[in-house]
Design a protein around this nucleic acid. Sequence first.
DNA 1: CTGAAAGCGCTTACAG
DNA 2: CTGAAAGCGCTTACAG
Lengths: 330, 330
Amino acid sequence: MAEALGVSTATVSLALRDSPLVADATRERIKEHAREIGYIYNRRAASLRTSRSGILGVVVRDIINPFYAEILGAIEDELDRSRQTFLLSNHYDQLEKQRNFIDTLLQLGADGVIMSPAIGTPASDIRMAEENGLPVVLVARSVEGADVPVFRGDDAYGIGLATTHLISLGHKRIAMIGGTDETSTGRDRYQGYVRAMEEAGLAVKPEWRIPGPRSKQAGFEATEAFLALQDKPTAAVCWSDLVAIGFMNGLARAGFKPGADISVTGYDDLEESAIATPALTTVWNGQRDVGHRAARALLDRLTGKDVTGSQELIRPELHIRQTTGAPVER
Amino acid sequence: MAEALGVSTATVSLALRDSPLVADATRERIKEHAREIGYIYNRRAASLRTSRSGILGVVVRDIINPFYAEILGAIEDELDRSRQTFLLSNHYDQLEKQRNFIDTLLQLGADGVIMSPAIGTPASDIRMAEENGLPVVLVARSVEGADVPVFRGDDAYGIGLATTHLISLGHKRIAMIGGTDETSTGRDRYQGYVRAMEEAGLAVKPEWRIPGPRSKQAGFEATEAFLALQDKPTAAVCWSDLVAIGFMNGLARAGFKPGADISVTGYDDLEESAIATPALTTVWNGQRDVGHRAARALLDRLTGKDVTGSQELIRPELHIRQTTGAPVER
DNA sequence: CTGAAAGCGCTTACAG
DNA sequence: CTGAAAGCGCTTACAG
């Protein structure tokens, strides 16, 4: 292109980026020519030279899960505005997949990564990325010992809200369905439930916990175990909205009306929870806030700004709808 | 690295890629050293040189939509196996967003793109990408005049299956909810419904079509319009499962039991449709097939294989569950 | 089996 | 305001 126009490559480069160093006439001539020949800017070459790629990575467990999809939507909003390209990946809680993805980001010279770390992610993985110039921001799950910003809700507090709400309606035997001790959300929510029960002076039986379910399907399948429980709990605190929705479908199939016969709470307040029938009582978990803040924090880190104090937890809120009511003995 | 080991860069390059041209001992020494210093392969540089990037793009309307998420899952399966990195984007049916994404792919030297084109995508956009060395494969929606492989279901046939099923149960007044004439799926499904009605000698009233809804929320909101319809249709063919699920929730809120009081069919057979309560009668649309075939076709194009004959439509199947039954007058 | 050299397409000092 | 030159980190003929 420089050749065709009889100018230097430096001038072309500057003109295309609207540098004031180039005379207006020259710039216009160059831009016009670029349009004509359908010039395509080669970002690989530029990035090789400048060592900034304009690529940001995002890796979560599974974007089919609306919980992550909502976080992602917010990240996308923020990133679009700053004209960054983002590379997305699921890790399905496989450390291997997550590592491959981080490697790819490193090889492409990505500018940073937002991750909801896979189960078992060691702090050293995070440190390795950081040391190789890939700033990390965590969402939804934290990693013990990793000194990077984390954006997530206050899980123990949030589940306490749901549990206490059920207790205030008169429930004394409350089960907890779903979640795993392998993630911080699973641990924190179970502990929050236990604490709320104990604070109300209620017994907590280990059998009342049905751990594992984290999807609609699994919540649906957990219905049988719940209905077979010895002491016939009158309510269930679910680990997430997906689990709660699956569980509610299971109850309906078994002839129970959620809210009327058995009280159910969810967690996350997904968009679809408000239109579920009956509408799900749940805990708003600030997915969009998490996404926005995480993206902003990463962008700030890139421009060298200080992002300390970003560890503070988002405060969940209880949204009472139709699936909770007075206890009914079976 | 070459310097530290006293070999040439060429040798290092070859050794790391396991070239048989390098002596075993040399190779091991180089690889060992690479591990020690935590060497990171620079893909930008390699790609600049070889003009292959290992990046594939995928752009769909909205991955929060499980229909696309399921296609995507299948694409991911296939691409993982071939060690390609994929760049994902939503276009939300905004041509501008789609064009930005294609530009980005071009700038990064992407090897190809799988797209479910935004409403209004002209064939010239596809041609432009192809001419600049970016092979295109289409999924779910076709583009008039674009001569590239398309993978999608036979929409007219599939909706005919659902409509005919309702007719065989005795329904004579059947509404169609959702979809837009701006997409091939919207047009084809409406036409398929009209044809099935006409072939059975039934009247088709334009008012019975409630166009627009394409989400759970919109399906939910369409309930009111449906219930207000003059001739009180006894059944509704929905444009998609999402619309059907939202609509069912709306019916339940209004006191009607889907399947018993009003028959409902969906389209796509999403995973969650089987556990909805009542379980949704719907049309399997082969999302996973679409994803797998599209990815394979793109990979084949990259290796120069012939992919003609890939235009053939996937044949949908009717999955009868609990939301369809004999007509009941209101 | 290994090395020296060129070049992919940019950007950035530097000189004029 | 513009040009000549170097260099980012690879790979690929080519020579030995």
